[in-house]
Structure formats: C-alpha cells, structure tokens
Design a binder for these strands. Structure first.
Length: 198
DNA sequence: AGAGCGATGGCCT
DNA sequence: GGCCATCGCTCTA
C-alpha cells in the first residue's frame, strides 16, 4: 500500500530550511510540526521550545571536534541527531548549517496534536502539559531513540512540517548546562503551557 | 515554590 | 573515573 503522506508532502520542510544560520533555524522551528509516522500510527506535535548549539559553543557536543557520538552534527543539514543521556533519556536535535560545521537545534518541547493516546501510553501520565514538556519527555512520548539517529527529516518516517509562526518568541539562557550557561540561545513560544520551564 | 538528589549507562579523557 | 543538552520524587517552607 502506498502511503501518500510519507515523503512527497509539500508541507515537509526542505533541506534549505536547515542549511542556514543555526539561531535562525532554532527560532523558525517554533510553530512547526514534528510528525512521526510510527508503528502505532501518526504521532505529532507543534514545536514550542528549542535551543541552539553552535560550533564554537562549549556547551555543544560538537565543540571539541568530531567523535563517534556527535558525528551526525557534522553531517548534512536536515538530519536527526538523537543522543542518549543520563542513562535513561534520549534527546532529539535537528542538524543545521553547512556540512562539516557541527551545529544543531535541540527540540525541547512540543504541544501534542496527533496520537495523544499513544503518548499517554508511552509516558504513563495523562496530564497534557506534562506529556511532551521537555526533551526527554517528548522522546519517550513519541517513542524516539537511537534508532532514529541520523534519519533524514526531509524524507523519512520522522519529518517536520510547516506551521504557523508564533505571535511572540521569548529568548532565555539554556537549561541544564554547565558551560556557556549565560548565552541567550533558548527560544520558546510566549504563554504556551507545554514549555518545559518559564 | 524551590532545592536536593537518586536512577542509570554511554561516552570521553 | 567523571561527567552529563533529564526527570520525578522528597523534603522544607
């Protein structure tokens, strides 16, 4: 059976969306829709919080050169970089900028729109504002892990589709980092209840 | 409301 | 061996 919604959808963001300034991408991703065509059906949500990680930024995994773990960050823009942390969580990033430059955007929170029953099952809670309000939480809710590392976000079962630009974006410092903790590289949709923290 | 902390394992020096 | 781009629980107020 042919799935017409898989890759030819004109609403899927093209490679050029990601292959530019990382901070611009981090801001532009707000309001876009993260869509995963999973074994349990379509799971989707509106991106409401992101963080930029830059090549000369000590908090960025790629800032000290390429290693087996961070290699995807140096690859072609528009791919997923999913890493494992704290022994039990995964985090989803979009690779940005030019190939060879290790940069990306961490998707920190989404507002659930599709497959909410599956998310509730995966997360073990039915409180909507707690389902996907954090980078680890949203990966659990969507069922994302190392299997999704390096997936092409423009042509795989995991994509990001166009959406409505938010009315107002708030800029703050990033969460949960020790180095470069003072840089204003976190962005979220003002007033959205699915953001991880104010 | 906010601080502290344990769980848990891969990665890097 | 130390360090995490986390989360949820407990304790204190």
């Amino acid at each position: 059976m042919i799935d017409l919604e898989t890759t030819n959808d004109i609403s899927v963001l093209p490679r050029e969306f990601y292959a530019r300034d990382t901070i611009e991408v981090a801001r532009a991703l707000l309001g876009k829709r993260l869509v995963y065509r999973s074994e349990n059906g379509r799971i989707a949500g509106t991106i409401v919080e992101t963080e930029a990680y830059l090549c000369d930024d000590p908090a960025c995994h790629a800032s000290r050169g390429m290693t087996p773990r961070n290699a995807p960050m140096f690859g072609e823009a528009g791919h997923a970089y999913v890493y494992f942390t704290y022994g039990m969580y995964h985090c989803l990033n979009t690779v940005t900028a030019t190939e060879g430059i290790g940069e990306g955007v961490l998707i920190r929170a989404v507002e659930p729109t599709d497959g909410i029953d599956v998310m509730i099952q995966n997360r073990g809670t039915d409180k909507l504002t707690n389902l996907t309000s954090g980078p680890g939480k949203l990966c659990v809710a969507f069922g994302l892990d190392k299997r999704h590392n390096r997936l092409d976000l423009t042509s795989s079962e995991l994509t990001i589709e166009d959406g409505n630009a938010p009315a107002e974006i708030v800029t703050t410092t990033r969460i949960g980092i020790r180095l470069a903790a003072d840089l204003p590289l976190r962005f979220y949709i003002k007033g959205n209840p699915h953001v991880s923290r104010k």
